[in-house]
């Protein structure tokens, strides 16, 4: 969807805060931990990302990063019936639960290690493209949780890698487990930007087969 998340090539954001740290405030660390340790049942990574895209655009573009995650955690849990709006606004549970076992730092490290989840899967359909093929990307905005950025729509590029089939985000954001062939596509800067800095520079994106057509 054409949401505020699709930032590639957008103008007027100004200078980069090159010396900024990983966190400015303690609450940012705590929100990172909360997001990693608590999730409503049935959550997919694609639905998590898509939910962020539906924030009011002005809010998305103006609040600190982990404030977005905080709102998103609440929104996802309310949507799933896991918490109520009133619980989120009050910060108190309508029914208290039994405290779970505490995870030690070692337990957290084990949990972190198990997050190396594979998105690769095997499908029957053979790949439509091969390394070296020239492709053209879908020129149209795509609904839902697309991972084809606006700046790379309707652009001609070259396939430089095929990764087999990976789970498809547009389906994952709807709770479906469907996979398509995934490719790395290289674009010349001059094919994406009329005012590019150097025409030989390259921009590489990982794109699923439904985004691509032969060129």
């Amino acid at each position: 969807m054409d949401g505020p998340q699709d930032l590639g090539g957008k103008e007027s954001f100004g200078a980069i805060e090159v010396d900024s740290p990983a966190y400015r405030e303690d609450w940012e660390r705590r929100q990172w931990a909360l997001s990693k340790l608590v999730a409503p049942p049935g959550l997919t990574i694609d639905w998590f990302r898509h939910a962020l895209e539906t924030m009011p655009p002005g809010v998305y573009l103006s609040v600190p990063y982990f404030q977005k995650w905080n709102a998103n955690d609440m929104a996802l849990a309310i949507d799933a019936g896991f918490y109520t709006m009133d619980e989120c606004l009050s910060g108190h549970a309508s029914e208290k639960g039994k405290p779970p076992d505490t995870l030690s730092v070692d337990d957290c490290e084990d949990l972190q290690r198990r997050m190396n989840r594979s998105f690769a899967t095997v499908i029957e359909e053979p790949p439509e493209f091969q390394v070296g093929d020239t492709i053209r990307t879908d020129p149209r905005p795509r609904p839902g949780h697309t991972r084809l950025p606006a700046y790379a729509r309707g652009a001609t590029g070259r396939v430089i890698a095929h990764h087999g089939a990976h789970l498809y985000p547009e389906a994952g954001a709807k709770g479906d487990h469907i996979a398509h062939h995934l490719y790395t596509v290289e674009f010349c800067a001059s094919d994406l930007w009329s005012d590019c800095e150097a025409s030989d520079d390259k921009i590489c994106l990982d794109l699923w087969e439904p985004y691509l057509a032969s060129a």
Binding site: E25, D26, W27, R29, R30, Q31, W32, A33, L34, K36, L37, V38, V63, P64, F66, Q67, N70, A71, D73, M74, Y83, E87, C88, L89, S90, G91, H92, A93, E95, K96, G97, K98, P99, P100, D101, T102, L103, S104, V105, D107, C108, E109, Q112
Partner: peptide
């Protein structure tokens, strides 16, 4: 945002979904 995160943390701790010590330990990790 500090108040928002505090609200979410107290909610999930009261619900018995995670302990504050687990959150501390993830941060330490």
């Amino acid at each position: 945002p500090a108040l928002r995160v505090k609200a979410l943390e107290s909610l999930v701790v009261e619900k018995g979904l995670v302990t504050q010590e687990s959150i501390d330990n993830w941060i330490e990790l």
